[in-house]
């Protein structure tokens, strides 16, 4: 068990993805006991106590589907040779979602706090060391000082990356947006007034011939409409939009009001 715990800790620390499968129910014993388990990482069996070959194969196959869905689930599996049925609980250990906060101004400070509470791995970028430093962002996982578009280019972007562009002006937002528009990021949001954003997108269409479906991926103006007034409220509205995209909600009051 201690080896398993060590491996679970390692997965969390490395931010990797894994699946822990546990036999929960056994109907007609085919050499399998409740409590037996195995850990799968990168599509491969890492360790565990399950010795039933056929069951292991079925688990490795199913683990892949669970990981894609990012959802833990109890799954019934058949053991054809033994004529038995087992229920296996698949616990998904997803890699934590990553948030890039581009621009370390007054919205970024509460935004990073909210994002850390929500368990995002947070990277803050700015080209001004007076703004992006450990004193202003004690909870951030990474801090990058330097040209923002160039930094974005150097960071790995995956389908579990969320990017918030809140720099001090469109002069900075636009080159950043250009850098990430074609990336597999799950969410790209950009701050700015409707008018400014319209002009920016128009330029992208006319001068750079960027396709509409690429431009339409961008959430701009950024955030949910909760009539924000303060930087803290804007930060909350941005994180609410990020969660909405991540979990797929409607963002309406549940009461219908």
């Amino acid at each position: 068990m201690e080896k398993l715990v060590e491996e679970l800790i390692r997965i969390q620390e490395e931010g990797g993805a894994g699946v822990l499968a546990t036999v929960v129910e056994v109907e007609k014993n085919g050499g399998v006991e409740p409590g037996e388990k195995c850990l799968i990482r990168d599509g491969k069996l890492r360790l565990g106590t399950i010795r039933h070959e056929k069951l292991l194969q079925a688990i490795v196959r199913e683990a892949d589907a669970r990981l894609r869905e990012e959802k833990s689930k109890l799954i019934p599996l058949e053991l054809p040779a033994a004529g038995g049925k087992v229920e296996v609980f698949f616990e998904v250990l997803p890699s934590p979602p990553k948030l890039f906060v581009v621009g370390a101004g007054h919205i970024a400070v509460p935004l990073v706090k909210f994002a850390k509470i929500l368990d995002f791995h947070v990277t803050v970028l700015d080209d001004r060391i007076l703004y992006v430093n450990r004193e202003r962002f004690p909870d951030a996982d990474e801090i990058r000082v330097g040209d923002m578009a160039a930094t974005l280019k150097s960071l790995p972007i995956t389908p579990s990356t969320y990017i918030v562009l809140i720099t001090r002006g469109h002069k900075y937002d636009e080159p950043c947006l250009r850098e990430i528009m074609h990336s597999p990021a799950r969410y790209i949001g950009m701050i700015g007034s409707r008018r400014r954003i319209k002009a920016c997108f128009q330029r992208f269409r006319d001068e750079e011939k960027i396709a509409d479906e690429i431009i339409e991926r961008v959430y701009a103006p950024i955030g949910l409409d909760i009539k924000t007034e303060t930087p803290e409220e804007i930060a909350l509205s941005i994180m609410a939009e990020v969660i909405k995209v991540r979990r797929g909600g409607e963002a309406l009051s549940l009461s219908g009001k």
């Binding site: 800790i9 450990r134 004193e135 004690p138 951030a140 996982d141 000082v145 330097g146």
Partner: peptide
Amino acid sequence: MAGPGACHDDKEVEAPKKESIYHQVRDFLD
């Protein structure tokens, strides 16, 4: 904690890691 003066351009600074439930489990098992 590093202040602003301790940061350098493009340098990555790591925040301390959060303890998970498995860290506590390991301590008990130990």
